[in-house]
Design a protein around this nucleic acid. Sequence first.
DNA 1: CGCCGAGTTGAACTGAATCAAGAAACGTGG
DNA 2: CCACGTTTCTTGATTCAGTTCAACTCGGCG
Lengths: 193, 193
Amino acid sequence: MSDFQKIKQALFQLTPIPEREWNEFADNLIFKNFSKGDYLIREGQVEKFIYFLNKGSTRNYFIKDGKEFTVDFHFEGDFVTAYYSFITREPSSVFIELLEETEAIAIPYKLLHEFYNKYQHGDRIGRLMAEAQYIKRLRKEMDLLSLTAEERYAALMTKNPALISTISIKHLSSYLGIQPESLSRIRKLYRKN
Amino acid sequence: MSDFQKIKQALFQLTPIPEREWNEFADNLIFKNFSKGDYLIREGQVEKFIYFLNKGSTRNYFIKDGKEFTVDFHFEGDFVTAYYSFITREPSSVFIELLEETEAIAIPYKLLHEFYNKYQHGDRIGRLMAEAQYIKRLRKEMDLLSLTAEERYAALMTKNPALISTISIKHLSSYLGIQPESLSRIRKLYRKN
DNA sequence: CGCCGAGTTGAACTGAATCAAGAAACGTGG
DNA sequence: CCACGTTTCTTGATTCAGTTCAACTCGGCG
């Protein structure tokens, strides 16, 4: 039960829901453990879950012409899913890879949609989650449009310095939309400070 | 009343709602006319509306270091808003400019949130709108990450050829994340076919 | 008419990619 | 716990897509 404390808190932070609704919801959550290198989903599969990370971290990426492009990273306390596929029920174009030992709680699609239909707070939570996802994507899009590689690195450094120390150059560079070599060079400039 | 037929249809396509709820909602909608060059919102203002376009078209853009970057275009039958600001209640970083004579229906923030609170279908509609917005942003982000300028143009040409004939080079190029001169050159390649 | 913004074209330049090769870090098995 | 192979990171040299700057054309409109 204490396994579910964190996700409960995260959901209640979106919108408080009656304890009775929460209990019914929590009964159908699935606790899962993953090893580094495992996948929550692979390209071509339809996303069946939204995961909450009790512990661990993940990388969402897709492959185009044999090259990997990282869309996002998630960490302890985040919700993760191949959201596009979860919404549209189309096969996912993204992979979600576990970057370390991870404890996650899976919210099944079916459960969530029952919740959407049964309770007002269902769609409320769904709306707030979708809005939060939208904001992340818009921010990143604006950065990609208007900033140079170096500016994007600098922006990330101030906005999310943890990322830069935790994530490999290879993954970070594909998130920033540049090659590892370029990131290495940019990094050198900033190391002097 | 017939003014509201199109928006009613658009909303019902998201999720059907009881006629009574619709009527209450429709009573508080605001019909507005705009001229080419007007603005729905400017940088620094907090977004008070979601607009539905009965007729006309708009451009969402932001300015960084004196340069314009276009995030999106909208046309007849679309919902338009500075969504980031609408959600967060923070001052908008985007402008929304009218590209032609436009008839729009404004949904006030307050009305929408009353609707969210009062009816299950409120948040449902909000969720579906947010999900749709998310999908647009993710698609564009993936294109910016993984495609070259020319590939982005080619993709747009097949996905939305109307855009290419309607929108000026200047606006289109800032949407694709390139300079007008570059778009002009890319276009020349494709003119031969 | 003549102006003005939008689009095109050319030439030079540059940020980042690519190619290549060495150094450092990592993990796995002996 | 070390030795080895594998992957990741760095650095250098070269190339290239797209930018920048500048000049010219075109179509609309006062």
